[in-house]
């Protein structure tokens, strides 16, 4: 299980990395490498050139602006999980991060790397979709911003071009009212990829009426999906178990699960409902 040979470029800046990427056919970037390295070891990925982003200091960091939590792409997942700013501003992300891999993979794995990779079951892309984060894609011709909901084109596929580097992700900060979050996932073992994961963020007014709802599901479709119909049904409601049970069925229409070794499509579909109900009730508390 050894990778095929490749050339290695340790980029010292984003510009350096972009230039290297443009200069080499078949070059790809390595972020935390927690998914890429095994794929290379299994020779499922065989880039001719690897451009390493790990030494680019200004690709790491967490800060806030008025409307957004800015997370630079190379920020380690462990840093995001431990960040008080994240916990305060986008608590859903903190909840989700505790389900991502293990301590050791989070120490190396990055937030941007997970989003760029786009595993259908992964927790971070799910949060990005749920909150419709903004994703910056840098290239030598400049930086463009893509909404997370428009980012993916299938499992492990996105609109990111080969010459682009994901440089930053911005999560909208919900202001006002009471914010509740729920994150539920089922995996065979703790730390495994989710079979199904559900991320929910709700905003309530002083009367406990739901004024804003984000519900997204991962693992049950080629990419994480928003449950827009369900979100609409939550709007303007006081949320309790009876209500959720009544309206949760609409998620069926956005799911397109498949069978694999660990779960059947039918399992995913049914479990998605249970977990969605739990996540909404978790967020409603």
């Amino acid at each position: 299980m050894k990778p095929a040979p490749f050339d290695y470029i340790k980029a010292t800046s984003l510009d350096h990395a972009l230039a290297a990427l443009a200069a080499h056919d078949d070059a790809i970037v390595i972020a935390g490498g927690q998914t890429l390295v095994p794929m290379m070891a299994m020779r499922l990925a065989r880039p001719s050139c690897l451009v390493d982003l790990n030494e680019i200091a200004d690709l790491s960091g967490i800060e806030t602006s008025e409307k957004y939590l800015h997370i630079r792409a190379m920020t380690r997942q462990a840093k995001v999980l431990a960040s008080d700013i994240v916990r305060t501003k986008v608590p859903l992300l903190t909840k989700a991060l505790s389900f991502v891999g293990h301590t050791q993979t989070r120490n190396r794995g990055t937030l941007g790397g997970s989003i760029a990779h786009g595993d259908p079951s992964a927790e971070i892309p799910l949060c990005a979709i749920a909150l419709n984060a903004e994703i910056d894609l840098a290239s030598q011709s400049g930086t463009r911003t893509v909404a997370a909901c428009n980012f993916y084109e299938g499992p492990l596929m996105s609109v990111r071009r080969a010459d682009e580097i994901l440089s930053e992700v911005r999560f909208p900060i919900w202001e006002g009212g009471n914010i509740g979050t729920g994150f539920q996932e089922i995996s065979p073992r703790h730390g495994d990829f989710a079979i199904v994961a559900v991320a929910v963020q709700l905003q309530f007014d002083a009367d406990n009426i739901c004024r804003r709802a984000a519900v997204a599901l991962g693992g049950a479709s080629p990419n994480p999906v928003r449950a827009a119909e369900l979100e609409a049904a939550l709007y303007g409601q006081r949320i309790d178990a009876a209500l959720v049970a009544k309206i949760v069925g609409s998620i069926d229409r956005v799911l397109s699960p498949t069978d694999d070794l660990h779960a059947s499509a039918a399992y995913r579909r049914r479990v998605a409902k249970s977990l969605t109900m739990r996540a909404i009730l978790e967020a409603a508390i």
């Binding site: 340790k10 490498g33 390295v37 070891a41 390493d52 050791q104 993979t105 120490n107 190396r108």
Partner: peptide
């Protein structure tokens, strides 16, 4: 598992050049 710059990581998941 090894410690890299003070935190535990998996040494099979990175290249020595890194």
């Amino acid at each position: 598992s090894v410690m890299l710059d003070g935190v535990p990581v998996r040494s099979c998941l990175m290249f020595a050049v890194q």
